[in-house]
Design a protein around this nucleic acid. Structure first.
Lengths: 194, 194
DNA sequence: CGCGACGTTGATTTGCCTCAACGATTGTGG
DNA sequence: CCACAATCGTTGAGGCAAATCAACGTCGCG
């Protein structure tokens, strides 16, 4: 089980005794998902947090017109979950799908609660994690409300240069909030300008 | 100092010993802001979390065209802060302004850190608080990407029926992400339908 | 090879914005 | 207490960014 990335990730925010680290790792479950495979489907109750060690996932919803909207990408080193469903333990609306062959480590909600009791430091870690996620969602909300599609694309490129190379265009379109057709036209415009 | 609302709010998520409660309250500072007064200006570093006990605040940004976009309203019982600035302690982009004459309780970031050390339970409380905020921002992001202005307005009405009566139209427009003019036209349409 | 997924391009439509003008209400200084 | 300004919402004309619909080329893959 490849826990190095995750452990070094955590160590940035809290310092763990060796036995705490060991205990934490013992609560994890590893899993592989093949490209186009689902980790969570619409209507499922999300009862794990997922950390990606290899590959890339996407979390998205499908609206009433059948259009997809991507809430987040999760390449190596990122966490993903349908937070609404995870917190409320109600059926969620998100779908989590593998964009590439992907390997993950999962912490179930029950194990997380036990972990909080036994090693309260982890409350801190996850608080910080959620705070960071909140900030990025706030910024994105402002951006979707105040920027043109072209500006949103430029921001995306600057923020995630590595992701851009790796993802099919339609996913980037679904992330910044335009149709694939418009995204294509926009891109040729941007290239022509340069 | 009117701490009842805040304390009962906290008690929903963690249980406090009397002396813990007392200690927590001792860290708070109360403040009054007059209608149209600012609690935070663009470029300020946000170093307090604010809990509203009376009145109503709004947190918003101004884009390059001078248009306002409201990130959140905070009536009685709600927390507000520029999370980006609060976490990074960098100058932020949000403005927090009083819509009505407002009374708040504030917890400084330094006091919050001390509180976390002395009463670690509060890590849990604020984690839960941030989680809820994250969920609502995620939903709103999806809504802005997938719904028409009219649907977003209907959602707003359903979700915050009390706020709708209380707020000037232009603020609701800036929250759901349309111009005041368009909002007005939309409203007459909606009314005509019924 | 043939099929499905992906990206491209064009014609047309539409949701929402911009700008401008105008009442109604609120508030404020003389 | 009045006069005048500022704020707020309304309405209309025109414009633009992005969606929709449709057709087509290309690639990777069973």
């Amino acid at each position: 089980m490849n826990t190095d990335l995750l452990v070094s990730n955590i160590s940035k925010y809290i310092t763990l005794e060796p036995q705490e680290q060991e205990y934490f790792v013992s609560l994890l479950q590893s899993k592989k998902i093949r490209k186009r495979g689902y980790l969570l489907q619409e209507g499922d109750i999300c009862n794990t947090s997922t950390f990606v060690t290899k590959g890339c996932l996407r979390g998205f919803t499908v609206d009433t017109n059948g259009n997809e909207h991507i809430l987040s990408f999760a390449p190596e080193g990122w966490w993903i979950a349908d937070m609404y469903s995870y917190i409320t333990q109600q059926p969620g609306t998100q779908i989590i799908e593998a964009i590439e062959n992907t390997e993950v480590l999962q912490l179930s909600k029950t194990h997380q609660e036990i972990l909080f009791q036994k090693v309260p430091k982890f409350e801190r870690f996850f608080r910080i994690l959620v705070e960071k996620s909140l900030v990025s969602h706030q910024q994105r909300l402002i951006e979707t409300m105040s920027m043109s599609a072209e500006e949103r694309y430029a921001t995306f490129q600057k923020r995630y240069p590595l992701l851009e190379e790796r993802l099919p265009q339609k996913h980037i379109a679904a992330y910044i909030g335009v149709t694939p057709e418009f995204f294509s036209k926009m891109r040729t415009n941007v290239l022509r300008k340069k």
